[in-house]
Design a protein around this nucleic acid. Structure first.
Length: 301
DNA sequence: CCCCAGGGCCATA
DNA sequence: TATGGCCATGGG
């Protein structure tokens, strides 16, 4: 990695497509936590100090991260570079996954059509858990609207070139909210309880990404996460793949996953859990990537 | 008006 | 351990 003043170059790994990653970021929903602009992404970040804005774009052989606003320290710039690497899963060699795809005739098309798609992460654990709770059992359009209301009402923000950029609220801010305040934003009573509860766990230090990461295996992490009220099997698996980059996660119960598997197996019905397990057998150690690629089949082109 | 949406909790048996 | 009701709202 080459650090200059306010620009960082991150080498692109093999089997990396910035266009496929942008396709994911732009898959039809307005997301309030980043902005797409001419084949680049604007993303506000903060690591303790004042927030700043980065832009991620592509050059031959590398991703380029420029600071567009704010004045991050060298350390914060390094944090931002790590964030981007995490976000785009840059440090992973996915060639073993592609070899498995070639061995499954019904999926071989993926390594052509989606070539270079990465597991786009949600590096912040609190944000990831909140996003899961918000999205539980409602359509994604409405889920994005709820997230936007939460972020625009309680997140800090700054203006750059007449656009407002929002940071996800801190746990302490959400923990202090009443159920009624979230109900006003059209959260259900139950979701409001889950959100403030999860925020409280973070604020009081009972959950952290660091502590979770110390656990030896995925099943231990799943147990710890599902002990939190509002976090079931789906949410725990989603968070482990998107935030901790665990590679052996299957979001059982996921409607999108079930639809994708049903289509590929030509079932004409919802697959049973056992059928999903069987289908994933060949991909041991790469289940999370298969989930991502199956979700990819749900958005056209 | 109907069904379902990138679930999870809780009561019941 | 398994099943069903419930949540709240929007899109098709």
């Amino acid at each position: 990695m080459c650090l200059s003043n306010h620009t960082v170059r991150l080498p692109k790994p093999d089997l990396f497509s910035f266009d496929e990653c942008l396709h994911f970021l732009d898959r039809g929903y307005d997301d309030c936590l980043y902005t797409l602009e001419n084949r680049s992404v604007l993303k506000p970040l903060h690591f303790g100090g004042d927030p700043f804005l980065i832009r991620v774009r592509e050059e031959t052989g590398s991703l380029v991260m420029d600071v567009m606003y704010g004045n991050p320290s060298e350390k914060q710039l390094q944090n931002a570079a790590d964030y981007v690497s995490d976000w785009f899963d840059l440090s992973r060699d996915i060639s073993p996954f592609y070899r498995l795809l070639k061995r499954e005739p019904r999926l071989a098309f993926m390594q052509e059509q989606y070539r270079g798609l990465r597991l786009m992460g949600i590096p912040d654990l609190f944000e990831a858990l909140c996003w899961c709770v918000i999205g539980q059992q409602i359509n994604l359009t409405f889920a994005h609207r709820l997230k936007q209301r939460l972020v625009e009402t309680y997140g800090t923000s700054f203006t750059h070139r007449s656009s407002r950029h929002y940071l996800f609220p801190e746990p302490a801010q959400i923990a202090a909210l009443t159920i009624g305040e979230l109900r006003k934003l059209q959260f259900s009573h139950r979701k409001a309880e889950y959100l403030t509860g999860i925020a409280g766990e973070f604020a009081e230090g009972r959950i952290s990404r660091k502590a979770l990461k110390r656990l030896p295996d995925t099943s231990g992490m799943l147990r710890q996460l599902t002990a939190i009220r509002g976090v079931g099997e789906w949410t725990a698996n989603y968070v482990l793949m998107k935030t901790l980059h665990r590679m052996d996660c299957i979001t059982f119960g996921d409607t999108g996953l079930q639809n994708a598997v049903s289509t590929i197996l030509k079932l004409g019905r919802k697959p049973a859990r056992k059928e999903i397990e069987t289908f994933f057998k060949l991909f041991a150690g790469w289940e999370s990537y298969l989930v991502i690629y199956l979700w990819r089949t749900l958005s056209s082109s």
